[in-house]
Nucleic acid binder design. Sequence first.
DNA 1: ACATTAAAGTCGA
DNA 2: TCGACTTTAATGT
Length: 245
Amino acid sequence: MRKRSPGLDESLLTHLPPFSRLERHQIRAILDQATSRRHDVGVHIFDEGAEADRFYLLLDGYIRVVRITPTGDQVVALHIPPGQLFGIAQALGRDRYPATAITAAEALTLSWPMRLWTPFVSEYDGFASETYATVGNRIGEMNTRLVEMATQAVEQRVANALLRLVNQTGRRVDDGIEIDFPITRQDLSEMTGTTLHTVSRLLSAWERDGLVRSARKRITVTDAHALVLRSQGSAAPDDTVTPPR
DNA sequence: ACATTAAAGTCGA
DNA sequence: TCGACTTTAATGT
């Protein structure tokens, strides 16, 4: 199941930001300490609150980072695309995972024991600065989502969530950009703090207007520009003043 | 403007 | 065929 990975090619890591400044023999050493693993879709790689014993690099697939409330409601915090580290509790000064990581699509990961985190940071040039940069980006994204939640109407939030997804995980297809992993109305509602019904109605309306095309678990944005307009909203929120033209 | 409830339709394993 | 997913409409706040 889980296997040692001396057979992995160094080129797997050479282009990725955390490792891009390293020598070949350094990457070899890193790979030799890694465990590689394939995960089916929908499995928990680690759970919120569990002891953070390993950190991970996503080679392929997608990870959904989720928090679960006592009543069982899920909130999707963010999605991790291939090439990024996750489960890096140590970088945040934690010894337990702050959220749950679930595969959004079949995934391939490398992982290392968390005790290697400190040596990696001190020995490998650029590792720390690059990983803190991605941590910063994630915090920035969560930050803008916080503002969206507080100020924007549901249609704008869902439009923004969709746009982020196509930007981060979109794949070009003939008639637009498709989200690269299966995603349901429920998932989208959990990302935007609304219900699956509202998401369904919005997607139906957008499909009628030719902005998106969707089948079950598949969403393609066919007119990103028009969707950007929806994400900015035409109607002003209750207590804001609409500036004159 | 949006959630909730209810019902029914559709798709895939 | 069954359950997961989706849609639609009616009604509530």
